[in-house]
């Protein structure tokens, strides 16, 4: 129970963000003309903020399964790089491991990165509760949005800005705690250059690949600052 309470405290920021963003998704989804239980199914099975937002117009425009799959893979490709941080520590999580891998969203990822677990508590249990609580908030938010969306027909244009704001907030948090700002600046510069050169529809994945390349180039310099863990 100690581990649960510790996790509950840690997840308060995500509670706020996910209720809001989940509600925004629920609203978008239902106002596009889909049933509430499908919105809940998305948050239960897909559980990926940016993908779920992008999924709404795809579904509304009757996009092909191939198109949906490809868009999802591209949008979520960044998660490959999240798992890399936890290959070792998830090993000790036992039965919870598959769920931890499934539930590794941007926000859960940043929480797990910033959580130091002291010995009487088991890290695997803490990670599991953080991950599970986060998804519960997301599903709860979705439900609120889906039901409020059918009850109150407000014009919610612009509510999807919550996702942009959440990324901006996490960016600021990481910037404040970073030992070196070089990785952030590397990503920023490459993203802006590729956005201008390739345009808004095609720049994301090339940007991520080239960012990895440039980070590897700076490895000698950066390992001295950041350390080897």
């Amino acid at each position: 129970m100690d581990e649960f309470r510790f996790a509950a405290k840690k997840t308060v920021p995500v509670l706020c963000g996910y209720l809001f963003m989940g509600a925004a998704f629920g609203l978008l989804f239902v106002s596009a003309g889909f049933p509430w239980y499908a919105a809940l199914a998305c948050s239960l099975l897909i559980y990926a903020g940016s993908v779920q937002y992008a999924f709404v117009p795809l579904l509304a425009q009757h996009a092909s399964l191939g198109m949906i799959g490809a868009t999802t893979l591209l949008l979520n490709a960044r998660h490959i790089f999240y798992g890399l941080s936890f290959v070792e520590s998830f090993q000790k999580a036992g039965k919870a491991r598959p769920y931890l891998i499934f539930a590794l969203t941007d926000e859960t990822y940043s929480l797990l990165c910033g959580t130091a677990v002291q010995p009487p508590m088991r890290q695997g249990r803490v990670f599991f509760w953080i991950s599970l609580l986060d998804q519960c908030y997301w599903i709860l938010g979705t439900a609120i949005g889906a039901f409020a969306g059918t009850a109150l027909p407000f014009d919610m244009t612009g509510v999807d800005f919550a996702m942009t704001a959440l990324f901006a907030v996490i960016f600021v948090e990481q910037w404040k705690s970073a030992k070196s700002h070089r990785p952030a600046i590397t990503g920023l510069v490459i993203a802006v250059v590729f956005l201008i050169v390739l345009g808004p529809e095609q720049f994301l994945l090339p940007t991520l690949l080239v960012t990895v390349f440039f980070l590897l180039l700076q490895r000698k310099k950066l390992e001295g600052v950041i350390g080897h863990e």
Partner: peptide, 21 residues
């Protein structure tokens, strides 16, 4: 190399995501 990327990529990725939005 993987450990190194695990430590540095998150910050770069968040910067990219802000631009993406």
């Amino acid at each position: 190399t993987v450990t190194y990327l695990g430590n540095t990529l998150p910050m770069a990725v968040m910067a990219v995501l802000v631009i993406y939005c």
